[in-house]
Simulated assay, not measured.
Amino acid sequence: MTSSTTSIQIQLAARPEGWPAQEDFRTVQIEYGELKPGQVRVENLYLSVDPYMRGRMTDAPSYVAPYALDETLTGGAVGVVVASASDAVPVGAHVLHAFGWRDVAQEDASSFRIVEEIDGIPLSLYLSMLGMTGLTAYVGLTAIAGLQEGDTVFVSGAAGAVGTAVGQIARKLGAARVIGSAGSAEKVELLTARYGFDAAFDYKERPVREQLAEAAPDGIDVYFDNVGGDHLEAALDVLNRGGRAALCGAISTYNDDDKPAGPDNMANIIKRSLRLEGFTVGGYGHLAGEFQPLMAEWLRAGEIAYDETVVDGLGNTVQAFLDMMRGANTGKMVVRLSRS
């Protein structure tokens, strides 16, 4: 027989207009009763904050339902099972799930996936390289852009969680040249010195169109887009004939109140037989089975570099999200919770 417990959770109090602010969120206490048959109780160890969450805070049609006002936000999390009424998910198991933005989750066992502990690899990587972040990069390069050996690849927002994964996976899959953009000189240095990019530039320094043309004098074959806006426009300038673009995100426009202007060179799509395809990773879960063993092998061999920006404490989750939206993170932004 399990006792009841209190869960501290973060809810959406108001829909942000423009940039989100602290007052758009509230912290509440939720009481969980005794476990029902088939349920498990999980203490969260790491929470994920991601750019897509900003889109869900707006009440507009999208690929996934918006967050509801006055209800607890959701997102990726890794935790440990502390109570179980399910033989399939025992106490002590580490699990990956979608009940983030809280310290304790209590749901049906089918909502949690047991994850393997890998020596020397933190569990938080199931929120990045081993999880949705890494799978997003893999799907965009393979299933969407059809990466071929010898391709030149450009990655926008390359110092973020997805971007750092894209650059390295592209190299492992045979790309000949990988170019990235980032928002500071320090991040540009990281891309070339740590993540193996051949060239990188600071998009705040000069127009992206100028800098990308200089970094890719022979054009690019694949564009992995995390930013949209001026980056997409610059990519359309230099994509070679038959080039492919995997459109993953458009973080440059997420907080705009006005509709952004479209690229002025869309005719290049026709002239050069380009293919631009948007995607969300949710429709490609079937590829996780081929991706995760590959990534685990690369990580064990020390062939993949990763960085995490770790913020401690559930009470700092909102600030971590706001900082991530402004590019304050290098690699994946995660919130670490101390186990009670």
Rank of each mutant, 00 (worst) to 15 (best):
A185M: 00
D230S: 15
K271E: 08
H97A: 02
M57T: 10
S252F: 10
P37A: 15
I220S: 12
P16Y: 01
H94N: 14
A158C: 01
S184R: 08
I270G: 11
S184M: 00
T58K: 15
S184K: 04
V91Y: 00
G140Q: 03
G289C: 08
T72Q: 08
Y203V: 02
I121Y: 07
L12R: 08
V49S: 01
E34N: 12
E107D: 10
D108R: 01
P20T: 03
A182W: 00
N268T: 10
S48L: 09
V80Q: 15
D59T: 11
G183R: 06
G33I: 04
Y32V: 07
T152N: 07
R241C: 03
S7R: 02
A105P: 09
I251Y: 03
V311A: 04
E233P: 09
Y126M: 07
V40I: 15
R171C: 01
A288I: 11
T136I: 01
I121W: 00
L47A: 08
E210S: 09
P37H: 08
Q319M: 02
D87G: 03
A246W: 00
N265F: 09
I251S: 03
A267L: 15
D108A: 15
N268E: 14
Q9T: 03
V311L: 01
I144F: 03
N268I: 04
A176R: 10
V95L: 09
V40P: 09
A165W: 00
S184G: 04
E186R: 08
Y306I: 08
G302W: 10
H286Q: 11
A158M: 06
L232W: 14
A98D: 14
D258I: 10
G327M: 13
V49I: 13
D221E: 14
A200L: 02
D151V: 10
E186H: 04
A65P: 12
Y195R: 05
P263H: 06
G327Q: 06
V64D: 09
G228T: 01
S111F: 12
R177F: 04
V238F: 05
D119T: 13
L294N: 02
I144L: 03
I114T: 14
T2I: 06
F154T: 13
L12K: 07
E34I: 11
A158Q: 06
S86E: 04
A182V: 06
V162Q: 04
D59P: 07
R194P: 01
N265G: 09
A215W: 10
G160P: 06
F112M: 09
A199M: 09
E308R: 04
A13H: 05
M325Q: 14
D198T: 12
G243C: 08
F154M: 09
G38V: 13
S3R: 10
A137S: 07
E277H: 05
V335Y: 13
P207A: 00
A14P: 01
L337W: 05
V80T: 11
Q9A: 14
E297W: 00
T309C: 07
V227P: 12
Y32G: 04
Y63F: 14
S252P: 12
A250P: 05
